[in-house]
């Protein structure tokens, strides 16, 4: 069965985390999923639009939702913060006619309308809910052989509770279950559902470095060989900033950080190149060796 989703990659997946975009497409392709990228979608505003004007926040996100509605399918995001912005806006505009009218007035100049016809999902939920455990399990060609993975959820895929009252994200261990299904061992550690600090990087980097540093410390001391996260912002702090964290906390981690799509892709036999693992700051060779792909990158797994 072919599935089609409107796809909003967000700035990270198109910029600092291109590997997220590439690996998401690669995994989706294995299941015949079409992720149709929105054209000129703009930005969900991260936490910044909300700090400027509530209407700007609603309009920017309403615009993305309206574009997806025009494609006539549910919208998939791959970033926790984008996900929350889109989910909250979708819920608000569906329920609040005054807010909806205000957004539609702003969108009218582009000929767009928010009607409230679609749902917003994270790609993680597409994997765990829409594709489902059964299909995923059937496609595993390279089980992760007890790879000790520390899941890091990120805040905005689980909080605030009001946004996730009805969704699968209320079920925090979804990522834990996925990791186990792929053959990995889940490392329990203090911090897996806490905050990486990304949203103060631009204001006071040190706070973010210390916050994520403590999670790294806990994950590593509990034996994690890697961290896996559904959020490219968390990924950026843990991976791109890891040397900065090491300098700040005077410690040494070298803990690779994977996007969910990369971890899944590895188990499903995709090659490190297909998953763009070389784009990380912290090298992933240790993981590849563990799962028996030290010969990579020469041998790419077959695509479906």
């Amino acid at each position: 069965m072919k599935r089609t989703y409107a796809y909003f990659p967000g700035c990270s997946a198109k910029g600092t985390c291109r590997e997220l975009d590439l690996s998401t497409h690669a995994v989706a392709a294995l299941f015949g999923i079409d992720l149709v990228e929105l054209e000129n979608p703009g930005c969900t505003g991260a936490r910044e639009f909300r700090a400027i004007s509530e209407q700007l926040h609603l309009t920017a996100n309403g615009r993305i939702l309206a574009l997806a509605e025009r494609q006539g399918c549910d919208l998939v995001a791959v970033c926790d913060t984008c996900l929350l912005n889109l989910m909250e806006t979708n819920q608000r505009l569906k329920a609040d006619a005054v807010a909806r009218d205000a957004v539609n007035r702003a969108l009218a100049q582009e000929g767009l309308t928010f009607e409230g016809k679609i749902e917003v999902k994270h790609f993680l939920w597409v994997l765990t809910e829409d594709i489902g455990e059964q299909q995923l399990r059937e496609r595993i060609v390279r089980p992760l052989r007890g790879l000790r993975v520390a899941p890091f959820y990120g805040c905005h895929i689980q909080r605030p509770a009001a946004a996730y009252a009805a969704g699968p994200a209320g079920d925090t261990p979804a990522l834990d279950r996925l990791c186990r299904l792929l053959g990995a061992e889940v490392v329990q550690y203090e911090g897996s559902n806490k905050c990486c600090g990304f949203h103060v990087v631009g204001v006071e980097e040190k706070i973010a470095l210390r916050m994520s540093g403590s999670h790294l410390t806990n994950a590593k001391s509990n034996g994690a060989q890697c961290i896996v996260t559904p959020c490219p912002l968390c990924h950026t702090v843990f991976d791109a900033y890891q040397p900065s964290i090491e300098r700040e906390l005077k410690s040494n981690y070298e803990v690779p950080v994977l996007h969910v799509s990369q971890l899944v892709g590895l188990a499903l036999g995709l090659s490190p190149e297909n998953l763009a693992l070389s784009r990380h700051v912290v090298a992933c060779e240790g993981i590849l060796a563990h799962i028996g792909d030290s010969r990579a990158p020469q041998t790419a797994a077959p695509m479906a």
């Binding site: 198109k14 910044e48 631009g202």
Partner: peptide
């Protein structure tokens, strides 16, 4: 304060380019 300047710069970048570029924002 820096936080407010950061938000202003964020919006400026998105408006100028249609998307956010982290390097330019930083």
């Amino acid at each position: 304060v820096p936080g407010a300047r950061h938000a202003r710069a964020f919006l400026d970048v998105v408006k100028a380019r249609g998307y956010l570029n982290a390097a330019v924002l930083a």
